[in-house]
Amino acid sequence: MAQKIDIDQVRKVANLSRLDLSSEQLTEFAGQLSSILEYVEKMNELDTDGVEPLAHCLEVSNCFREDIAKESLGTDKTLSNAPEQDGQFFIVPKILDESNAS
């Protein structure tokens, strides 16, 4: 039986998720995700036309804070967990394609 999601789609999703997966893992996930998705499609048994989607179970809105400054962490604490830093900045391998930014 054809799988719900094939290996190419799994690879695409892995790429979107920034997960460098081995081909064995891709294959394994293709199978598992397919059966989970098949199960999930059980939802299609329900007629949900006209049903409002519920993203928040709280029926509240308008939560604001006032525009008052609070203390920041400061450079040292900000960088304290960084895998690589130079005392001022986080360091990453050179970004060549700036246009990737949104």
Binding site: L33, M43, T48, L54
Partner: peptide
């Protein structure tokens, strides 16, 4: 964790959002 990230990414990705994520929110409502 990887499996769930993959599943969630797929459910939100272009072309599948309505079928999975939006549908699930409606079912949640029910």
């Amino acid at each position: 964790v990887k499996r769930r990230i993959m599943l969630g990414t797929y459910a939100l990705s272009s072309g599948y959002y309505d079928a999975y994520y939006l549908k699930a929110l409606k079912v949640r409502s029910l």
